[in-house]
Every structure is written in structure tokens, then in C-alpha cells.
Design a protein around this nucleic acid. Structure first.
Length: 271
DNA sequence: CCCGATTCCTGTAGGC
DNA sequence: TGCCTACAGGAATCGG
């Protein structure tokens, strides 16, 4: 599923092919995503030039002349460059057809994604206004996480996945970063020391940067289409490995549910 | 304010 | 082989 590295990989993949180009036609075949695609979006977008392709958290932001097209890939979404004549599949909900004769095609089987039109400053939009800092920015540090976690009794893993604290850490990378940092995902966020948060902040950055460098966990499917883990999967140390031996000490990995999410950890290495 | 539970959807994996 | 069910998961929103 697309996490931040996959979204960033998508951004880098499409930007050179659409920036500076005019959208000729917008074709919408299914408006029922997480929120309905707004009526009239076709008319607002057609004829405009893509000034830039940006990203905030897991949201892609196509900056156009008079507004911003916000795209979220949800869990099963993808954006691919295709020949507009290629017959759309069942889950190919939106095409942006460019003057260059290429189409940007949005597909999303589970329809947890979103395509919205924003006028004015996107940072003020309801979906973006309350978001915490980007994980790879210097704003996210051990000191920051330590300060924000004081007084909180929730598990450190759910704290780490809270978009108001920091963005871009989904379930896969939360599990991996906590393993790398040697922290038990069930521990109360508010009682973890500054030193351990320094380590955790480092591990979050390293694991995300590595995944981005490798084109995300789902690179293969970013091109091919469906959302199974790709290259980075071979390097996952705990995610999806319940019952298998810890790569460090061979103790069988345990699974617990935190915040309705599967959490896998090593009971010996993570305290 | 804090935090866990619920909800959307459908492809896939596992059980029989 | 094929049917059936449980599960996965981002994040807004609800409920306590």
C-alpha cells in the first residue's frame, strides 16, 4: 500500500512528464472515492497548466493556475502515465489527458483515495491544516518527539502514527522504526526517555530515506499496478513476520493489535 | 483534550 | 478446484 516513500516515488515519477503541460480533458468514470469527486472538477481543471507536482504528507498536490488538485492514493491507489487510448480497467476512475498525448490515470480498487479541488492556499485546507511536520525535515527530532509525548499514555506506536505529531509514518514503517530503535511498540509514549526518542527519530528518518531511495516498497506495482510490496519488502525486519525468528536474536516475533493495527515486534530486542 | 473504536471498500489469503 | 469468510489498512470521525 502506498506509504510516504511510495507517494514520493510516484511524485518523482510523474512530475517530469506533466509539469509545464496543459490538461486538455478530464475524464471521470467513477466519482465515489473516499469523498465524492466534486461536480464541476472537470471544467475547473481542463485547459490549465500543471505548474508543479508537490507533496504534503501522503497527499499529492498538482499546482495549477487557479487552484490545486489534491490526490490521495489511499491504500490501493496508483497514478500512472498511459496512452489515453488504452482501454480503462474497472478501477481506472480518472484520466487527466495532456496535450502531449499522454494521460495521467488514477486507479483505486478499494476507493479509499481522494481527488479534490482546492482554491486558495492548500496549506489552509481542512485536510492539511492540522498536519504535523514532514518526517525527514529537521523539525522532527528526538527532542520534538520527547516534548510532544509528555503526558501521553497511548502506545508509542500509535503516537508515531498520529499525523498531528508527524506525518508519513504508516503501519509498515512504524513497525520497522520501532524495531530498529529497540523500543517495545506497546510502551506508553509519555514515559520514554529523550535518549530513546533521539534514536527513534533517527530510525524513522533512516528507514523512510532508504525506502525512498529504493523507489518505495511497492515500486514494482507502482509501475505494474496493484499494491503488493516490492523491492523494500525484502528488507522488512518485522512487518508481516509474526512467528518468524528475529533477524537479530532469533527469538520468535510476537504480534499484538494497537490502534486496530497489527504490530509485530521482538520481545527480546524491543523493551 | 485525550484516545480508542468505528467506518469506508474490495482484493487476497487461508480454511475447508 | 472453488466457495466463503476474515483480514488488511489511511485517516476522518465518533464516542466515552
Amino acid at each position: 500500500m502506498p506509504e510516504l516513500p511510495e507517494v514520493e516515488t510516484t511524485r518523482r515519477g510523474i512530475a517530469p512528464h506533466v509539469e509545464g503541460l496543459q490538461v486538455q480533458v478530464v475524464r471521470i468514470r467513477h466519482r465515489g472515492l473516499r469523498w465524492p469527486i466534486p461536480q464541476g472538477l472537470e471544467e475547473r481543471v481542463a485547459g490549465q497548466t500543471v505548474l508543479s507536482v508537490g507533496r504534503r504528507a501522503k497527499y499529492l498536490l498538482l499546482q495549477l493556475g487557479s487552484g490545486t488538485l489534491l490526490i490521495h492514493l489511499g491504500m490501493s491507489g496508483s497514478l500512472r502515465l498511459v496512452d489515453p487510448l488504452l482501454p480503462p480497467g474497472r478501477h481506472d476512475h480518472v484520466d487527466l489527458v495532456f496535450e502531449s498525448g499522454v494521460a495521467l490515470r488514477f486507479s483505486d480498487a478499494r476507493r479509499f483515495g481522494a481527488v479534490l479541488w482546492i482554491e486558495g492556499d492548500p496549506a489552509q485546507h481542512k485536510l492539511l491544516a492540522e498536519l504535523g511536520p514532514e518526517p525527514l525535515s529537521e523539525l522532527v527530532s528526538g527532542e520534538y518527539l520527547f516534548a510532544r509525548s509528555r503526558g501521553r499514555r497511548q502506545a508509542v506506536k500509535t503516537f508515531l502514527m498520529d499525523n498531528r505529531i508527524l506525518v508519513g509514518v504508516g503501519n509498515i514503517y512504524a513497525n520497522e522504526a520501532l524495531f530498529d530503535a529497540g523500543i517495545d511498540p506497546r510502551r506508553a509514549a509519555g514515559v520514554i526517555s529523550l535518549v530513546r526518542y533521539e534514536r527513534l527519530a533517527d530510525c524513522v528518518k533512516v528507514v523512510l530515506a532508504r525506502a525512498i531511495a529504493q523507489g518505495g516498497t511497492t515500486l514494482r506495482d507502482f509501475v505494474g499496478g496493484d499494491g503488493k510490496p516490492g523491492y523494500f519488502q525484502q528488507q522488512l525486519q518485522v512487518y508481516g513476520r509474526e512467528g518468524q525468528p528475529c533477524v537479530r536474536c532469533a527469538t520468535p516475533l510476537l504480534r499484538v493489535v494497537l490502534g486496530q493495527r497489527a504490530s509485530v515486534y521482538c520481545p527480546r530486542c524491543q523493551r
